[in-house]
Each structure stands twice: as C-alpha cells, then as structure tokens.
Simulated assay, not measured.
Amino acid sequence: MSFSSFQLPASHPLALYGWDTDWEAEFAPYAEQGLLPGRVVRVDRGLCDVVTPAGVIRADTEFVVPRDPMKVVCTGDWVAVDPEGDDPRYVRTLLPRRTAFVRSTSSKRSEGQVLATNIDYVVICVSLALELDLGRIERFLALAMSCSSGEALLHKSALSWESGAQPLGVLTKADLVPDAATLGHLVQDVEKTAPGVPVLPVSSSAGEGLDVLAAVLSGGTSVLLGQSGAGKSTLANVLIGEDVMDVRAARDVDGKGRHTTTTRNLLALPGGGVLIDTPGLRGVGLWDAETGVGQVFSEIEELAADCRFHDCAHEAEPGCAVLAALDSGVLPERRLASYRKLLRENQRIVAKTDARVRAEIRRDWKRKGAEGRAAMDAKRGRWH
C-alpha cells in the first residue's frame, strides 16, 4: 500500500485538523479582512461547530446559504468566521473544497447530498457478523471511487480515486470469524470485488489490525461509511481512545444496528489524522458515479475494449468479449449483473438533469421495444 501524507505546519493550532500551507494560501485574502480560519466539525439546523485557533465556536451559516444544495456548509469544510468578540458569530465564506463525498438523496429527486468534504480516505466498514453482501460493497466502492474534487462538482463529473479520495475496505468484528483460513478467504472475496483497494480485517474488541489502520488514517482526513451495525462508532471510539460516540448492540436476528450516530462528526485522532463518523446508510444512492462503477468493475471495462463494436451493450452482440468471458467462466455472472445494475441506476440519476442522456434512454427503450415485437411476430409466424 502507498498512502499520501499531509505537509503540516506543526506549529499552527489547526495542524491537528489538517491545516497545511495550501489552505493557508487559500485563506490569505480573508486573513487580511481579520477573519478567523476554522474547520467545521458538526452541522445542525443552520448552525455549526467550528474549530478555530481560538478554540471551538458556535457559528451561524446564514450568510453562506446557497441555492445549490451541493454547496451547503458540511462537516469537513474549511471556512472563514467572524473574529473573537463578535456575537453572534457567522460563517462568512466557504473555502474551495478539494474533495466531496456525494450520494443521491432519493430515487425520485435529482439533488445530491454531500456527506463529507476535504477527505483523503473513504473507509468502507463491513461487518463480518453477517454474510458478506458483495453487491452492497460494490455500491459503496462505486460511490467512494467517484469522490469528486471541488472543480469536478461544478461540472458534475466525478474524478478517479487516484486524484480524489482513496477507498479502503475495513472488515469489522474479525474476532467473530472462527479461524484464520476463513478470514483469509473473506478478505480475498472482498479484494476480488474491489480491485486495487486495500482490505484490512480489524477487531475493535480484540484490538486486531487497529495499529495498521491508525497508521494509515494518520495521513489525512478519513470518513467512515457503512450500514448501521457495521461497527463504525465502536471503531471510532477505539481509534480516538475514549467513548465519544454512542454505541448500541446490533440486533441478534439480522445483525443490523440502530442509528446511534445521527450527525456527521469530525474528530482529531491522537496519532494524527482526522476522522469523520457518519450515520449508518440504509439507502446508498449513486450520484454521477459512472467513473467509479468503471473502476470497481475494471476487469469488465478491460474486456469491453476487445469487443467487436465500440458501443457494445454486452447483451447479444456478436464478437462481445464480455459475453465470451462470461461463457468461459472467467467472468462471474453475479459480477456482470451487478455492473449492469449500477450503470442503469447511475444513468437514471444523470438523466434527471441531462437532456441528452434522457434522449439516449428513450431511444434505447424504443429499440428494445421494436426488437421485442419483432421477436414475438417471428414466433407467431408473422413477418413484416
């Protein structure tokens, strides 16, 4: 594994929260106005907690309420706030985001929801107390690999994780797996599902794997993602070294947890780095994640390059390298089905705001409808 690291001016009071020379340069014009730099550690109903050189303050976001829901103040943002002595304090401006983790709010709406900003690692927590749901892991990874830069958000096109945030798979509750061989097979299954993504089994109760994880996370800002009951809050408490997050036991019947974390919280780790814990995600809607889907299913994308037709849909076309790999057993059927499903879902999301994509979908429906009618006519002996 190779991981990047911050270049921190250690003497700065915000160094523990990720302040570096680039942020200092971005903030310079606001420093001249007498404003204070700070990082948002929590947002709640128009108010936010901001850590500044003068300590944690409560500030109102009234002056930076945008029409675009993608630009609302979010946990992880760097901001300029009123100086000490002002009452009430206000957030005056939002510094440009380096990265943003976004999901679709609902299948019936076109808005995206920003979950965390300025992050370096997306830590996908998967509980080993339940049978692995590889399809859900692929979905989380597609979102993680589409973690966009601030510039990309303006154009609504996702960046690759090589230039945005890096995903990391963490298999929690590893102590519940009976033997090392079984645990090794589970890790391999997830690694095959996530090509090129590091996968680390950990146990918060037994302390297994935590030193390696802490060393990785010390290199920047990380966000914990996963379903309720995946052990995110427990993991956060262990990494921080104290019980700062509420924890409840998962249900025995299905291993699912309850939403003990209801807001996104930014916490400094004692060994370096910053951690953002998020509420458990029941719905994981894709948001402009075509690039992420392509990277999660990189072997399918590589096979597609050898198809006879450049616009091959991998359904019934002659000379399709993807279908050939499926027939030979090289490509698992479950993997191709998951790839198709995520691409279709992402296309529907993009179509809500892109007329060209909507037109393509309508043409595809008409083509498939015509093919279906022709097949039915041929079966019944009616020829046009």
Score class of each variant (00 low, 15 high):
1 M>K: 06
3 F>D: 08
4 S>F: 00
5 S>N: 08
6 F>I: 06
7 Q>A: 11
7 Q>R: 10
8 L>T: 10
8 L>P: 01
10 A>D: 11
13 P>V: 02
13 P>D: 06
17 Y>P: 00
18 G>Y: 00
19 W>C: 01
22 D>V: 10
22 D>I: 06
26 E>Q: 11
27 F>Y: 05
27 F>N: 01
29 P>M: 02
29 P>S: 06
32 E>C: 05
34 G>H: 07
35 L>T: 06
38 G>Y: 03
39 R>K: 11
45 R>P: 05
46 G>I: 12
52 T>F: 12
54 A>R: 12
55 G>S: 13
56 V>M: 14
56 V>I: 14
61 T>Q: 13
65 V>F: 09
66 P>N: 12
69 P>H: 12
72 V>D: 11
74 C>V: 15
85 G>C: 11
90 Y>H: 15
93 T>F: 07
95 L>M: 14
98 R>M: 11
107 S>F: 08
108 K>E: 04
109 R>K: 08
109 R>H: 10
114 V>S: 02
114 V>A: 00
117 T>Y: 02
122 V>H: 01
123 V>F: 02
124 I>K: 00
127 S>P: 01
127 S>G: 07
131 E>A: 12
132 L>M: 04
133 D>I: 01
134 L>E: 02
135 G>I: 03
135 G>T: 09
141 L>H: 03
142 A>K: 03
145 M>W: 09
147 C>K: 00
148 S>H: 07
149 S>R: 14
153 L>D: 10
153 L>V: 15
158 A>T: 01
160 S>A: 11
161 W>L: 02
167 P>E: 05
168 L>Y: 05
169 G>C: 07
170 V>F: 00
173 K>Q: 10
174 A>Q: 01
176 L>D: 03
178 P>E: 08
180 A>Y: 02
185 H>I: 05
193 T>F: 00
194 A>L: 04
197 V>W: 00
201 P>M: 02
202 V>I: 10
204 S>R: 05
209 G>T: 03
210 L>N: 05
210 L>S: 06
212 V>R: 02
218 S>H: 08
221 T>K: 03
224 L>H: 04
224 L>R: 01
225 L>R: 03
226 G>N: 02
227 Q>F: 12
236 A>V: 12
236 A>H: 09
236 A>G: 15
239 L>Y: 04
245 M>K: 01
247 V>S: 09
248 R>S: 14
249 A>H: 11
251 R>F: 08
253 V>Y: 07
256 K>E: 11
263 T>W: 06
264 R>P: 03
266 L>G: 08
268 A>P: 04
268 A>E: 07
268 A>I: 04
280 G>E: 10
284 V>R: 07
284 V>H: 01
285 G>V: 00
289 A>R: 06
291 T>G: 13
293 V>L: 10
294 G>L: 05
300 I>D: 06
303 L>V: 09
303 L>F: 03
304 A>E: 02
305 A>M: 09
310 H>Q: 12
313 A>H: 04
317 E>M: 04
318 P>Y: 12
318 P>E: 12
324 A>P: 06
324 A>F: 09
325 A>T: 12
328 S>N: 14
328 S>P: 02
330 V>F: 15
332 P>Q: 15
333 E>K: 15
341 K>Q: 15
341 K>E: 15
344 R>W: 14
344 R>T: 15
345 E>S: 14
346 N>G: 15
354 D>G: 13
361 I>Q: 13
364 D>P: 04
371 E>Y: 06
373 R>G: 07
380 R>V: 11
381 G>R: 02
